[in-house]
Simulated assay, not measured.
Amino acid sequence: MEMAIWLVLFVIMVAFEAATLQLVSIWFAIGCLGGFFAALFGASVQVQIVLFLVISFLLLIAVKPLVGKYLKPKLTKTNAESLVGRRAKVTSLIDNVNGYGTVVVNGMEWTAVSADDAQVLEPETMVVIREIKGVKLIVEKED
Rank of each mutant, 00 (worst) to 15 (best):
G42Q: 11
S82L: 15
L59M: 12
G31V: 07
F16K: 00
S25C: 13
A38M: 10
N96M: 00
L59P: 01
F57Y: 06
A18T: 14
S114M: 04
A62Q: 05
P123C: 03
L51A: 11
F57I: 13
L137K: 01
T78I: 02
Q46C: 09
A118N: 04
V135E: 14
K133G: 01
K89T: 14
I26L: 02
A112V: 10
M1Q: 04
Q48S: 12
A62N: 06
F52E: 10
I26H: 05
Q22S: 07
K133H: 09
R87T: 15
M3G: 12
V103K: 01
I55A: 09
L93V: 12
I30M: 06
F16V: 15
A15T: 11
I55M: 15
R130K: 15
P73L: 04
F37K: 03
G31W: 02
L60S: 12
M108H: 11
Y100L: 14
F28V: 00
W27Q: 15
E81R: 08
T20H: 01
F52L: 08
A115Y: 10
M126E: 14
D143W: 09
V47R: 11
A4I: 09
S92K: 03
G134N: 05
V90P: 03
E17L: 07
K133R: 15
L83H: 11
S82R: 14
S25G: 13
L9Y: 02
A29W: 02
T125M: 11
E2I: 07
A38R: 06
E142M: 04
M13H: 04
T91N: 10
I94T: 01
V127N: 06
W110Y: 14
L51G: 08
G35Y: 13
N79R: 03
K72N: 13
V50E: 01
A115N: 08
K64W: 14
G85L: 01
P123K: 10
I5L: 13
N106L: 07
I129E: 09
F28A: 03
L51S: 05
V45M: 13
V14N: 02
F57L: 10
A29P: 05
I138T: 04
I94V: 13
I61N: 00
P73M: 04
P123M: 01
A118Y: 06
E17T: 00
L83Q: 08
V24D: 12
V128R: 09
G68F: 02
A80K: 10
A19D: 11
V127M: 02
F57N: 04
V84T: 14
F10E: 03
V113Y: 10
I132K: 10
V120F: 07
L121I: 12
A18D: 05
A118L: 06
G34C: 12
M3T: 07
K69G: 08
V50T: 03
S114K: 00
T125C: 00
I49K: 05
C32Y: 07
A43G: 05
L33P: 00
T20F: 04
L7I: 09
E131A: 15
L137V: 02
L66D: 01
A38H: 02
F41L: 11
A88S: 04
T111K: 09
A19F: 08
E2G: 11
V139T: 06
V67L: 15
L21T: 05
F41C: 11
I49D: 09
Q119D: 12
L83P: 01
P65F: 06
G99D: 07
I94Q: 10
Y100Q: 14
L59S: 05
D95G: 05
E17K: 02
K64F: 10
M108P: 08
